[in-house]
Design a protein around this nucleic acid. Structure first.
Length: 326
DNA sequence: CAGTCGTGGGT
DNA sequence: TACCCAAGACT
């Protein structure tokens, strides 16, 4: 009987996504970049819209560390979870400084514990970089592998410690690169949440959950409340007032601040809705024309295109432009 | 440790 | 439509 590692390997060579650009390079930096971009983000989005433009703008760890955060955020615009960009930039700065102290170009550490200490690199990303960039015999344990392990062992409520233990016990130490990539591909294309294709799965022979795969793992239900806000667009001389957001939410991006409803206001120009992970947002949008500049910075619509702006604020700008067109 | 942090794909 | 969920990290 063929070993499970052989089956996985054979499946990967035939059906794996072996041509993904971050799988055909050896430079740790683009591999690291891909791991961060892919956090909670589908391969398709990263591949078609973000990976190549970002690398073109910041081709090396050094160029990333030397770039202004605004430029990095602009290339992250629309990808979401902007703390990733902030932490990626911060990590590059830390490594750049470390390199300068030794008089060398910045490089990623290969040690998992050292990687783990860098901002934005958690346990899984540290393992992924170790396995993919440095070919270390360690498992990755992200959403795809997690779902596979839950089904293999019929676990309804995934316990992180147990899952890591199972992952370590299963990793192919002879070929950790192909093994880990294969596990993620199996999870992404076969062992999917709904209607998994068990008959095509190289793990079928060892899967305890194959009869009722959809019951592993148990899905959590979350309430999604709706928040209602009022947005006042301050306009002066055909320019819009935007401020740079601070705090954790959409940090570093430019946008419109939530405002109190002015008592003397006319009718709102419209409404904008946006769905976040934990709440839905409904914004009534108002316009206030100022006789003199009262905000810090105003931008023409053309200038706004050069700012990093979130999706809601993009919608608000569009609503404003559509309104003045008529 | 449960809540927070974006957006778009797929159904 | 409305919902689930995606190469998670941080607090």
């Amino acid at each position: 009987m063929k070993s499970i590692h052989e089956k996985i390997h054979k499946w990967y060579k035939t059906h794996g996504r072996t041509d993904l650009p971050w799988r055909t390079v050896t430079d740790p930096y683009p591999i690291y970049l891909s791991e961060v971009m892919l956090q909670q983000t589908q391969v398709k989005t990263v591949l078609e819209r973000y990976y190549f433009p970002f690398l073109e703008a910041f081709p090396t760890l050094k160029s990333l560390g030397e770039a202004p955060l605004d430029a990095v955020l602009k290339h992250w615009e629309g990808l979401g979870y902007y703390n990733r960009a902030k932490n990626l930039h911060k990590a590059a700065q830390v490594l750049l400084q470390k390199g300068q102290a030794q008089g060398i170009a910045p490089t990623l550490p290969s040690d998992i514990d050292t990687l783990f200490k860098l901002p934005g690199i958690g346990k899984n990303t540290a393992h992924a970089i170790a396995a993919f960039a440095f070919r270390q015999p360690v498992p990755v344990m992200e959403a795809n592998v997690k779902r596979i392990l839950c089904r293999l062992h019929r676990l309804r409520t995934p316990d992180e410690k147990r899952l890591w233990k199972l992952a370590y016990g299963m990793v192919d130490k002879e070929n950790p690169f192909d093994y880990n990539q294969a596990m993620m591909d199996i999870g992404a294309t076969l062992c999917i949440p709904k209607d998994p294709k068990c008959d095509l799965c190289p793990l079928e022979s060892i899967c305890k959950g194959k009869n009722t795969p959809r019951t592993y793992p148990l899905k959590k239900k979350r309430s999604v409340p709706t928040r209602e806000e009022h947005i006042m667009i301050s306009v002066y001389n055909d320019r819009l007032a935007l401020t740079k957001r601070s705090g954790k939410f959409l940090h570093g991006l430019w946008g419109f601040a939530s405002a109190e409803v002015p008592l003397c206001a006319s009718e709102p120009i419209g409404e904008v809705s946006h769905a976040y992970t934990h709440f839905k947002l409904k914004c009534k949008v108002w316009v206030h024309h100022e006789l003199e500049p009262e905000q810090e910075s105003y931008f023409t619509p053309e200038e706004i295109k050069d700012l990093a702006v979130s999706k809601v604020d993009e919608k608000i700008v569009k609503l404003y432009l559509d309104t003045i067109q008529q």
